[in-house]
Amino acid sequence: MRQSAVYEQPRARVMTRVKRVLLFALLWWLLTEGRAEAWGMGAVLVVAAALLSVSLAPPVAWSLPGALRFVPYFIWRSLVGGVDVARRALSPARPLQPAVIEYPLRLALPRSRLFMAGVISLLPGTLCTEIVDDKLWVHLLDRRGDFQRDLGILEQKVAGLFRDENRPEEG
């Protein structure tokens, strides 16, 4: 659904649709594994799906530099998270010291909050169980460590990715 409050410039509207067509063309290329003969039907479907998608899912503000900072951080930290939990699962002693902490969120946008709640589950030793008002409840595999600081770093990267203001919403 298009927000009527925001007036879209004609140029911006065209650009939005051009970007969507390119995105769907890329998806089609992946799905057909690059087969040339699939483009006959593909051309029609790509354009139709792209134009439909603009009204079903309006463009979301994000930042390319933010994404370039987020992706390597995410890949590295999720790898560390996997190694950490695998070590605990394989170790005969099964070292665990679970705890639940509260983390005060500064992110304002619902999508960046939900995104953060999801990503937390892949990072070392943390898992989001609940979002209550402006707090995240985070289950820890091992309470030793500065999780408030780690979560703060993650929150900054998420804010950068979604161009979030990084402070609570007012009104």
């Binding site: 999720s78 790898l79 998270g81 996997g82 190694v83 950490d84 939990v85 695998a86 605990r88 699962a89 394989l90 099964r94 665990l96 679970p98 589950s121 892949l122 070392p124 030793g125 898992l127 169980t129 289950h139 595999l141």
Partner: peptide
């Protein structure tokens, strides 16, 4: 192994989500 050995559903979720995705 984490799903089998860990003591509660939360710790099992840690093991499953992180290890399987890596």
């Amino acid at each position: 192994l984490g799903v089998l050995r860990f003591p509660d559903v939360y710790t099992r979720l840690h093991a499953l989500t992180k290890a399987d995705n890596v």
